[in-house]
Nucleic acid binder design. Structure first.
Length: 489
RNA sequence: GGCCCUGUCGUCUAGCCUGGUCUAGGACACAUGCCUUUCACGCAUGCAACACGGGUUCAAAUCCCGUCAGGGUCACCA
């Protein structure tokens, strides 16, 4: 038997990282066993703007490099892969359930049910719908009146439904705790608990790995599986993802929860995959960094935690740094281009000389470049005509007696450095400090702020070198002018 | 409210099934020191947890019961 898993998002507009983790577990499981991973769009209740939302989902999957074997765009033998297009399958299954007597017509109105729900609520008891089957006479009469009806599954009383969950273990519930649930709305649309079973069976899904909020639904679904005569798949309910530092479910209020936000910041998909895999899953007591291949090889449901994990942006960031260290310079240069272009730092087509400069900057930045968008926050001043001064750095490094004088002398010295290269710059600056009796820190720090505007950054000589003599001289002169305009108090 | 799930450092987790090797291990974060012209990297050190209460046992993070806390579900949502 080949393992088949699926991820079935409803197109709501964005990809929650908790959802991505669930998808990842499914994908990993399928790849681990050499099976198939199916992407299905659960849009039974959606009608508008689905297209754009689906596009967003697919984009996220492509970015993560989680390919789907069947689903939107690629099709497959069990299509269509949009629930909104599978109406016939649901109708056929419902007809079978009507024929076998598992299902009955419910002619009640929303008002009637609301009243019962309110009453149950007031009495603080669980609301359970248990309707009586309409008699053939009633059916004839109601149909003549044109009354709409929903289809309800009649839950057999007095038995236990058992879930052998791969993550939660054995979970059981008495059918006495369950009400008769609707499988088809009055309009003829299937409900999740029904559509999902029909699809999972039809698509021959062997492992249903999904969020734990569906655990309670599973009892109903098992009843449907049985009534339809299908073999039960293996269920695995993964705990929810909590907000940073809490046990509350992660929601949009908790900051960056959409995959797109990390994509836009320039995170690496390898880091995201590594992070998400470790969120709720571990191999042993020590391994933190996993390659994609290792994940596929080592992943299993047996080591998925049954308790919730909270999203830890710090850990993601650390992993990102670890993965960034593995990227080649040339790849970083290419990867950084879109961000630079968006910021207006470069044009659409980039000249070779420009690329050389970008490579020099990235190389000088070294491990400081944690995400690709850092090229803007950390290296912008290498590519602009004017710089913005960081007020704190100005105050700390420039607003001191003697700085202007030092800057004047430094500029004079800089003019004479030959060749204008890192090693000669280094010797020259050391000599400058020595002959003037100034500590290196009192030379390097103010000059850094003068030429970059920032108090922190790449190596000092890298900065001087990449910027070039003319730019450095100009920026030092500008800084001296600025200091003169607003003298140190 | 009924039913169901969950509870180890701030966080991710190892250990729990098969009690003793756990004075509870690793990682992130944090703090300090080293390196250093800044920051980052790297290295070293430190801080820090078995939710609570009973019980079983020579022995409990591990087994049992209860309490508390968090989450889910009880829709003609998914």
């Amino acid at each position: 038997m080949t393992v088949r898993t699926r991820f079935a998002p409803s197109p709501t507009g964005y990809l929650h990282i908790g959802g991505v983790r669930t998808a990842l577990f499914n994908w990993l499981l399928a790849r681990h066993y050499g099976g198939q991973f199916v992407l299905r769009i659960d849009d039974t209740d959606q009608d508008r703007h689905v297209e754009a939302a689906v596009g967003l989902i697919l984009e996220g999957f492509r970015w993560m490099d989680m390919g789907w074997d069947e689903g939107p765009e690629v099709g497959g033998p069990h299509g269509p892969y949009f629930q909104s297009q599978r109406g016939e399958k649901y109708r056929a299954a419902a007809d079978r359930l009507i024929a076998s007597g598992h299902v009955y017509r419910d002619y009640t109105t929303a008002e009637e049910r609301d009243a019962e729900k309110k009453a149950a609520d007031a009495a603080k008891i669980a609301y359970r719908f248990r309707g009586a089957r309409p008699t053939p006479e009633q059916i004839t009469q109601y149909d003549a009146e044109g009354r709409p009806y929903a289809l309800r599954f009649q839950v057999p009383l007095g038995r236990k439904v058992v879930i052998n969950d791969a993550i939660k273990g054995t979970v059981e519930q008495s059918t006495d705790e369950m009400g008769d649930f609707v499988i088809m709305r009055a309009g003829g649309n299937p409900l999740y608990n029904f559509a999902s079973v029909v699809d999972d069976a039809d698509m021959q899904i062997t492992h249903i790995v999904r969020a734990e909020e569906h655990l309670a639904n599973t009892f109903s679904q098992i009843l449907v599986f049985e009534a339809l005569g299908y073999e039960l798949p293996i269920f695995a309910h993964v705990p929810y993802v909590a907000a940073p530092g809490s046990r509350k479910k992660l929601s949009k209020r908790d900051g960056a929860v959409g995959l797109d936000e990390y994509m836009n910041k320039g995170y690496l998909p390898e880091a995201m995959m590594n992070y998400l895999a470790r969120l709720g899953w571990s191999l042993d007591a020590s391994q933190e960094v996993f390659t994609r291949a290792e994940l596929i090889e080592k992943f299993g449901l047996d080591r998925v935690n049954s308790s919730p994990a909270s999203h830890d942006p710090d850990k993601l960031f650390w992993l990102q740094g670890e993965w960034m260290k593995t990227v080649d310079l040339a790849d970083k240069v290419e990867a950084v281009l879109p961000w630079m272009h968006k910021e207006g730092l470069i044009h659409e087509s980039v000249h070779l000389n420009e690329k050389r400069k970008i490579a020099a900057v990235i190389s000088a930045l070294g491990d400081r470049l944690k995400t690709y968008s850092d090229i803007i926050t950390l290296g912008k001043y290498f590519f602009t005509d004017t710089i913005t001064y960081d007020p704190d750095a100005v105050k700390k490094r420039l607003r001191k007696p003697g700085v202007s004088e030092m800057l004047v002398k430094f500029a004079e010295m800089l003019k004479t450095v030959e060749p204008y290269e890192i090693s000669s710059l280094e010797t020259a600056v050391h000599a400058f400090a020595e002959t003037n009796g100034i500590k290196m820190g009192d030379v390097v720090n103010p000059v850094r702020v003068a030429v970059t505007g920032q108090g922190v950054g790449p190596g000092f000589y890298d900065c001087l070198h990449i910027l070039g003599r003319d730019v450095c001289l100009k920026r030092i002169a500008d800084t001296i002018a600025m200091l003169a305009a607003e003298p140190t108090s």
